[in-house]
Design a protein around this nucleic acid. Sequence first.
DNA 1: TTGACATGCAGGTAAATACCTGCATATTGT
DNA 2: ACAATATGCAGGTATTTACCTGCATGTCAA
Lengths: 117, 117
Amino acid sequence: MKDEDLAKDAGKNEDKVFKALADPSRRKLLDLLCEENGQTLNQLCEHLNMARQSTTQHIAILEAANLLSTVRRGREKLHFINPVPLHAVYERWVRKFEQQRLGLLHDLKTRLEGEEP
Amino acid sequence: MKDEDLAKDAGKNEDKVFKALADPSRRKLLDLLCEENGQTLNQLCEHLNMARQSTTQHIAILEAANLLSTVRRGREKLHFINPVPLHAVYERWVRKFEQQRLGLLHDLKTRLEGEEP
DNA sequence: TTGACATGCAGGTAAATACCTGCATATTGT
DNA sequence: ACAATATGCAGGTATTTACCTGCATGTCAA
């Protein structure tokens, strides 16, 4: 696979992660699993006041973004968080802007002053 | 203002930030500003292959999320990144899951082993 | 085995989203 | 002043999204 294709893939995954995190119900699901990892679908549903099927769809989106994985045990499905994509978001988005943080006000100041002498 | 209201407000802002970051065009806008802070609307448009008005709408969403601020200079509008909300996302979402990272595999293992003796 | 339980699958709808075009307004340089 | 430039505002549409209901399948326990 070429480098550009790899970059495209990374971009697609990143997009899935951001889209997955864009919904409050899905963020709540991650929160619930953070409190107690490995909960079943029904356990998660109890906190979400929406139909079970809706929750299932949200979970599918989180799973496609690789933010959680599931394991079947008999007739139930256990859900586990995967923190790796969140860390990737941090590396790509937070650290990058963090580094420039101190420089920003200076940029603004000099730019405005420079243009109107 | 009560504590619960403050929490609600924080939640709304958080939601705006995540929704703002959910679109690839908006993430690209932040990237462009990271390369060169203080660009005008037209400068930003040149990299986005969509109508100027669409870009304006994306910028409005980023601005509502407090991810960037604007300054008018004559007939142009300069755009500046604000990294603070991104850092808030980091504190709320990345660090939290980061801490549990090592515990997760252990949780999974013990849970599965415990239930099927 | 059979009834209760946990989840999967297939549509259907209302609201939100991401675009667009067309026209209006304000600023600058000649 | 006036033509070019930079941006603002008002709709309009196609797609996506977040829900739902109804029914099917698989698993456990008495």
